Simulated scan of single mutants.
Amino acid sequence: MDVTLHLAQDPRADALLGRSPLAALVGMLLDQQVPTERAFKGPRTVADRLGADDLDAHDIAAQDPEDFAALLSEKPAVHRYPGSMAQRVQQLCRYLVEHYDGDAELVWKGVDDSRELLRRLEDLPGFGRQRAQIFLALFGRRLGVQPAGRSEAADVYGEPDSVRPVPGLTGPASPAEVRAHQRGRRTAAKALRPARRG
């Protein structure tokens, strides 16, 4: 895996995401309740604080939980909730060690059916259906992982030219475009709500 992504909007962080399947999974896990760019910059920050060039599932799984939480909490914190996210990142890495010998790429490598890939992604700690669909769409569009039925399994996130979160991040201007799209959808949804009677 060696592709160009623009999720973190930071060259070093995006380079890690483009070559490290584990970094991509960790970034996706962190992408909640913080701006997308901050979430996907997280894997690079974690690697730097561990003194490594890449993330290693075995190493992260074996970290003392308190020490690892402290590492994510160092200023600037990796996430708005660094303690709970440190726990989730370690749970993800332990799962990958137990089920995939620590090799995140084995989650999708050789899988030729999107329903099976979606199931595998949903089984990852901290993922669930929506996060799995977003990640499946990201892989189909950016990384060339396109098993049969990918668009259908990814649902609305697999639509061509989607500007929904994460899969739509294609270049330096994209985060602003994605946020504008989200604001437009929220405004449209509010306009459809019945007016309250006072």
Rank of each mutant, 00 (worst) to 15 (best):
V107F: 09
A148I: 05
D54V: 10
L136K: 01
P35S: 11
A69M: 03
A13F: 08
S162W: 03
L121C: 07
V46W: 01
L17I: 11
A70S: 08
F135L: 02
L17F: 08
L22C: 07
V46E: 08
A69H: 06
V78I: 10
R131H: 05
D53Q: 15
L30I: 00
A13R: 02
Q63L: 13
L192V: 07
R141M: 11
G126A: 06
L25G: 09
M1D: 10
R179M: 11
P35D: 08
H99T: 15
R94M: 12
K41V: 02
G128C: 02
A132W: 08
Q32R: 04
A195H: 11
K75D: 15
Q130G: 01
Y95G: 03
A154D: 06
G149R: 04
R115P: 03
D101G: 14
D103Q: 12
K109N: 14
L5Q: 01
G128Y: 09
H58V: 10
Q130V: 15
P76M: 09
P160D: 03
P165D: 10
V3R: 13
Q182N: 07
T36V: 04
A176S: 14
L16K: 10
L7D: 12
G144I: 04
D123T: 03
V145T: 13
T4G: 08
R49M: 09
R141P: 00
E177R: 13
A15Y: 06
A15C: 10
E152S: 14
V166K: 08
R38H: 06
G83N: 12
L124A: 00
R19N: 02
H181A: 11
Q133N: 11
A173L: 10
E116H: 11
C93T: 06
K109G: 11
G171P: 07
Q182C: 14
A39R: 08
P165T: 02
D56K: 01
D2V: 14
E98S: 15
I60P: 01
G184P: 13
R185Q: 15
V178Q: 12
D2H: 15
T4E: 12
Y81T: 04
Q91E: 09
A69P: 01
V163E: 14
P175K: 07
Q33P: 06
A188F: 10
F139G: 00
V111W: 04
E152P: 07
E177T: 10
P35W: 01
R120I: 02
A189N: 11
A15G: 05
P147E: 07
F40K: 07
R44C: 07
Q9M: 04
H181N: 14
V26P: 02
A176F: 06
E177L: 15
H6W: 15
K109I: 11
A39D: 08
L55T: 08
L169V: 02
V3C: 10
R129S: 12
R12K: 14
P147S: 10
R150W: 15
E66I: 00
D113C: 06
Q32V: 03
L30V: 06
A154V: 13
V166D: 07
G42F: 04
G83C: 00
A47V: 02
R150M: 15
D14A: 13
G198Q: 12
G198T: 05
P194H: 12
L136A: 05
D14N: 12
L7N: 10
P165M: 09
V26H: 00
F68H: 07
S73V: 00
C93P: 08
K190G: 05
